[in-house]
Design a protein around this nucleic acid. Structure first.
Lengths: 341, 341
DNA sequence: TTGTATGCGTTATCAT
DNA sequence: ATGATAACGCATACAA
């Protein structure tokens, strides 16, 4: 009996390779997968014969069939909210680099419904950077109970069938402000409009640390910017054009800090001699800036998260769900300490 | 005989639902898929019983098994080069919105090896925005011959087993410059460093049209910027600070044009009365700007591309590979014609 | 109106 | 050292 099959990629199957090589499908499977399913070994001769046949027919294993047998999809799903954020891009690059050699594919769900996507397209592991509602938390537990491997990026959650990545910026921001306080008194701040909690805390740290140091907060030393980078540039311009301009700037993101440095240079101010600048996030963009940007950030964040995902996906690590705590540290560079001699 | 299965999501199967509902797997399959595989009908009673059982067991069909049977993966792959580009984000948003209701999932491959990804994770349709090397072109043909459905975004390619989306900006840019020429003589240009052909043509149009209008090209009316948006802001600042500043600016991207508008406003110039500004790309960011940004762009590009992908993915359209030509048009908004009364 | 049986392409268990 | 073959979960032709 033969079945109606809608038009689909006419791919060569294991069986075709087996026939061409004159061996059984089992042998082909073992040779091509490199696995030894309890077998003692395969002769050199058949191995080459099989490999040649596979190459000749341009054989690629059918993922769906493999998945149905092994239960593994070879898919790493990254659910990311802000695709435009350098953070997302660097993470996806890092993960893709880490998992590809293991035969896995990293794909991004852009600001979408991860619960639906995961049930529709099961994956070996999913990274989720946005857990907001109670429904989200409920979905997390449900998926985890169903056996899905999840790695959740969130400061508040605790492991519950899924891994959690903590990365609290607050203490890092404290380090940044204190770093400036070591040699500066007139410290300005570039912050974004309030309302979003994450950002609010980064700004709160500025207030707290200055008060702790006995320094009065000046309204004209705080500029509110929005996500547009040119608005950060304009805000820095305003702040640095004043006669009694600050001699240091704390920006709540590397993004804004980079614009501040550029504004300073445009005004022919020396960085860090006239104005020191520090950011938050420790991005590659900042590191590459001239002068290089001092910043605070988690250590080896991208590489380590990528490795966690790879291990969970391949099943190399099967331990209980864990909390991965990323502590932040200070990365002093030229924009605060000048060029090293 | 039972087989060793590595730990995998312990999902409920069709058979479990069938047992709970007290019917056969075939019936469950028909009821839940809504399909009528030649059947005349299903009784109301069994339908509700099946649906209840499915809900109770939280049943979700196994994609891999379905894929192996139907040859469809329900996956729409978007291979995008510049994730940071608003173009990519808007496209992915639009596609995701269009295909999700059809049960498809749109996932992004970020600046990766699409040929490898597609063979590893077959999809119902793939959108590819970067065909660069000869090897790429070879891969395209190979995948198309294998039966994969591809939609390629490229101005040079012609359909060859795959669809091609053409979107030549040149004529659109011409419209933009001519629009300014209708009521302006001193027209500045914000362009990026040369070398990249695409951008070079957008700049060439500026030169051509001004010459055709008998206007001399002034070196100080052309500023070269790089990808950094704050550099566009700075360049616009320079240009507009001159005593004999231009009274109109043609920017080769909406990105740069937005910065130009902000720089003008910062200098207390009125837009468009003192300086008219037009961009290229017709992005949402520009549309939302205050004043809204005039621009040129393909008409309904994102929506139409999304619909093409959806149709190809679902097989709604099975016609021969086609060229989709997007002609550009002018979108005059407040930044050139002022606020409508 | 519903159930039975088969095959999709692979992996893994057994027998040879 | 290799072959035959049973499942994995689903969709469907066909029998009942």
């Amino acid at each position: 009996m033969t079945y109606a099959q809608p038009d689909k990629p006419a791919r060569t199957t294991l069986r075709m390779v087996a026939e061409l090589a004159g061996v059984s499908t089992a042998t082909v499977s073992y040779v091509l997968s490199g696995r030894t399913g309890g077998r003692t070994g395969v002769s050199e001769a058949t191995m080459t014969r099989v490999r040649q046949a596979a190459q000749e027919l341009n054989y690629h294993p059918n993922q769906a069939a493999r998945a149905i047998r092994t239960g593994r999809t070879n898919l790493v799903l990254l659910s990311l909210t802000m695709l435009s954020d350098p953070w997302s891009q660097e993470l996806s690059r890092s993960v893709s680099e880490a998992v590809t050699p293991s035969g896995l594919t990293a794909l991004i769900l852009a600001d979408g419904d991860w619960a639906t996507a995961i049930t529709r397209q099961p994956c070996d592991v999913a990274f989720i950077d946005n857990v907001r509602s109670d429904k989200d938390r409920e979905d997390l537990r449900r998926l985890a109970r169903s056996g899905y491997r999840l790695v959740v990026f969130d400061d508040q959650l605790e492991p519950d069938g899924f891994d959690v990545v903590h990365s609290d910026a607050t203490e890092g921001c404290r380090l940044a402000v204190r770093h400036l306080l070591e040699s500066h008194q007139r410290i300005g701040c570039l912050t974004t409009e309030l309302g979003r909690r994450l950002v609010h805390r980064r700004y709160a740290v500025y207030l707290e640390e200055l008060q702790a140091a006995g320094i009065e907060i000046r309204d004209d030393y705080v500029e509110t910017i929005d996500l547009d980078p040119s608005s950060a540039y304009a805000a820095a311009m305003r702040m640095l054009s004043r006669p009694d301009r600050p001699d240091a700037i704390y920006a709540i993101s590397d993004f804004a800090a980079i614009s501040a440095v550029q504004a300073a240079l445009r005004l022919r101010l020396r960085v860090p001699e006239d104005v020191a600048v520090i950011g938050v996030g420790n991005t590659l963009d900042g590191e590459r800036l001239e002068p290089s940007l001092s910043s605070v950030g988690p250590t080896d964040f991208y590489v380590k998260v990528a490795e966690i995902l790879r291990q969970r996906a391949t099943g190399e690590v099967v331990g209980a769900p864990t909390t991965y705590d990323f502590s932040w540290s200070l990365f002093p560079r030229e924009s605060t300490v000048g060029r090293r001699t």
